[in-house]
């Protein structure tokens, strides 16, 4: 396939006095590089006071967008639950009312087990389940990480704002 390499070359160590001198020189060069960083602008953030500038596509907390008037957008198709790689992470219970319109009784997501892959957001046919640039999700108990429909649902105007920033038609009726 390829040429066989020549036998490994033994690298001659320089004579001792030479080595000391060149060693000191090289350490000096390294230190100069390190010291040149002193005057540069800091790259770290003072986190709790300064929040990072996150991208609009950030994979953060899941949420349910609503119609502009604040009513449910979800149609209960369970596509998100089907593509979720975690078992039973998204649980949906729904029924149909007199006009055969879907009514979502329950929509629970266990954020403690969510791996933030974004599969659910991609298959949603009505652009309802989406992700927010929110990463501060720590809580004191596992139960508190299980978000129900009330926790997940955004207000009408927030949902409009989300759609505006992500290039979708802002008002949905």
């Amino acid at each position: 396939m390829t040429n066989e390499p020549s036998k490994s070359q033994h690298i001659e160590a320089p004579a001792d006095d030479n080595r000391v001198l060149s060693g000191l020189l090289e350490i000096g060069r390294g230190l100069k590089t390190v010291l040149s960083h002193v005057g540069r602008e800091a790259v770290t953030l003072e986190y709790p006071e300064v929040l990072p500038d996150l991208s609009v596509r950030f994979h953060g907390r899941l949420c349910l967008l609503t119609k502009s008037d604040g009513t449910d957008l979800c149609i209960g198709c369970k596509a998100c639950a089907r593509v979720c790689p975690c078992d039973d992470l998204i649980q949906i219970e729904m029924h149909r009312d007199g006009d055969k319109k879907p009514v979502i009784d329950q929509f629970t997501i266990d954020m403690g087990r969510c791996i933030f892959c974004g599969n659910c957001t991609e298959v949603c046919p009505v652009d309802c389940i989406k992700m927010l640039p929110d990463f501060e999700l720590a809580d004191y108990s596992r139960e508190a990480l299980v978000l129900d429909k009330y926790d997940l649902t955004l207000k009408g105007e927030d949902a409009d704002e989300w759609r505006r920033t992500h290039g979708l038609a802002p008002s949905v009726t």
């Binding site: 991208s55 596509r57 950030f58 994979h59 933030f116 974004g118």
Partner: peptide, 9 residues
């Protein structure tokens, strides 16, 4: 992060 939405995954 800008293109995929995640930094590592």
């Amino acid at each position: 992060e800008d293109i995929t939405g995640a930094r590592m995954m």
